[in-house]
């Protein structure tokens, strides 16, 4: 690949209360690329995404987005471009529509219902009552709302933490297909944490396998 990476991790380490969770993790993510992170439970996969999203600062090492250290970005500006979908799809109190546009609204943007319909079709959640209570959705539906909510921000880097864990195979494949098709539209790179090796092989171009440091030591 000739273009420079949109996201670079250089020897990123993370420890909580003296307990090492990540050690010297380095990777490069390019646009139009889907990069997988796998490994056993407790190996720091989710922590890694939280570090990239700047919800946590690494104990050592550097994370660069578009060539600039993430600490030089304003946190909101960074997270609008490097958007994370956490493993647990949490809904804000209110309607499905309110949840979909939540991310846009905090950045002073809005979306027409047509846009919402289009994105919901992509994640196979259309038709749905946009005025329905988001809390009443099933786990799989919430997960798709969370992905759609992130995609509406047109991120440069999309961080997905076990994004299809609550979905059946068909829906999971549809979500993967949607994300793949949006890669070039959004000029986006995707970092995906998954424990599903098949998904990693099928969906990602490269995979980084983390080890559980507490078990290794």
């Amino acid at each position: 690949m000739v273009d420079s990476p949109i996201l670079e991790l250089e020897k990123v380490s993370m420890a909580f209360n003296g307990k090492q969770v990540l050690r010297d993790v380095s990777l490069n993510l390019h646009k139009n690329e889907t990069y997988g992170i796998t490994g056993p439970s407790g190996c720091g996969k989710s922590t890694l995404l939280r570090v990239v999203n700047d919800l946590l600062s690494p104990t050592s090492g550097t994370v660069r987005f578009q060539g600039k250290d993430v600490r030089e970005w304003g946190p909101q500006e960074l997270r609008r471009r490097v958007v994370m979908v956490p493993q647990e799809a949490k809904m804000f109190p209110g309607t499905v529509r309110g949840n979909l546009v939540w991310g846009l609204n905090v950045h002073g943007m809005a979306a027409e219902d047509e846009q919402l319909k289009a994105i919901l079709q992509e994640v196979r959640l259309w038709p749905i009552d946009l005025d329905g209570n988001a809390e009443n959705l099933s786990g799989g539906q919430k997960q798709r709302v969370a992905i759609a909510r992130a995609l509406l921000l047109k991120p440069t880097v999309l961080l997905l933490d076990e994004p299809t864990s609550a979905l059946d195979t068909d829906s999971a494949l549809a979500v993967e297909k949607t994300i793949n098709s949006l890669l070039s539209d959004y000029q986006m790179g995707v970092l995906i944490v998954t424990h599903n090796k098949e998904q990693a092989e099928r969906f990602t171009s490269r995979v980084l396998e983390l080890e559980n440091l507490s078990e290794a030591s």
Partner: peptide, 20 residues
């Protein structure tokens, strides 16, 4: 925590995340 971090992860300011 997870709801609050969901808000932050979407780029909300602490004020926006805790408004409710």
């Amino acid at each position: 925590r997870s709801l609050l971090e969901t808000a932050l992860a979407l780029g909300a300011t602490p004020m926006q995340a805790t408004e409710l």
